[in-house]
């Protein structure tokens, strides 16, 4: 794992605030675009960070997302304060969701978030303590095409 990052940014996410939902991942996407990162990678990061962000909005009370990157790797971490996840294996399954009807009426909660993060990340680690919170570690490598 690379320990030295050239750029680092943190973003606050408020739980239950659907009006602002998605802004953090858009911000991250804009930064990567400005850096000239390969659009394919930008999209993978956009998807993974959006799903992570939405899970805080939907399930937790608040969270902090961090973007760290150097010319080789992009890392997104997320720490939230919330109910935590009881059974991570189950949560990772496609279609598994505990979203309320109300959330599903808004078009969220298809149970595809975590599987999508996994699909788009090179490394995805999920840790959780029930009653305290959840932490995500998402890593995406920039190959030689990282800078176009």
């Amino acid at each position: 794992m690379v320990s030295h990052y050239d750029l680092s940014r943190t973003f606050e996410i408020k739980g239950r605030d659907f009006s602002k939902a998605g802004y953090v991942s858009i911000n991250i996407k804009e930064i990567l675009r400005e850096l000239g990162i390969d659009p394919v990678i930008v999209r993978r990061v956009a998807i993974a960070s959006y799903e992570a962000e939405m899970n805080v909005v939907m399930y937790a009370s608040k969270g902090e997302m961090a973007l760290k990157l150097n010319p080789k790797v992009i890392q997104i971490t997320l720490e939230d304060e919330g109910p935590g996840i009881e059974n991570i294996d189950m949560a990772m399954q496609e279609g598994y969701t505990t979203a309320t009807d109300e959330i599903r009426e808004m078009g969220f909660g298809a149970g595809m978030g975590l599987p999508n993060i996994k699909k788009n990340a090179d490394v995805f680690e999920l840790k959780s303590t029930v009653g305290k919170g959840t932490s995500y570690n998402i890593v995406i490598y920039l190959n030689s095409k990282g800078n176009v």
Binding site: D6, L7, R9, I31, R33, E34, L35, G36, I37, P39, L69, N70, P71, L142, G146, N147, V148
Partner: peptide
């Protein structure tokens, strides 16, 4: 074809530096 905007710098390392400077 895509028409992406000009990056802060062609070199990713330098672009990162400029991004920091921009902050």
């Amino acid at each position: 074809e895509p028409r992406p905007i000009r990056a802060l710098d062609e070199d990713l390392g330098k672009a990162i530096e400029k991004q920091r400077k921009k902050d």
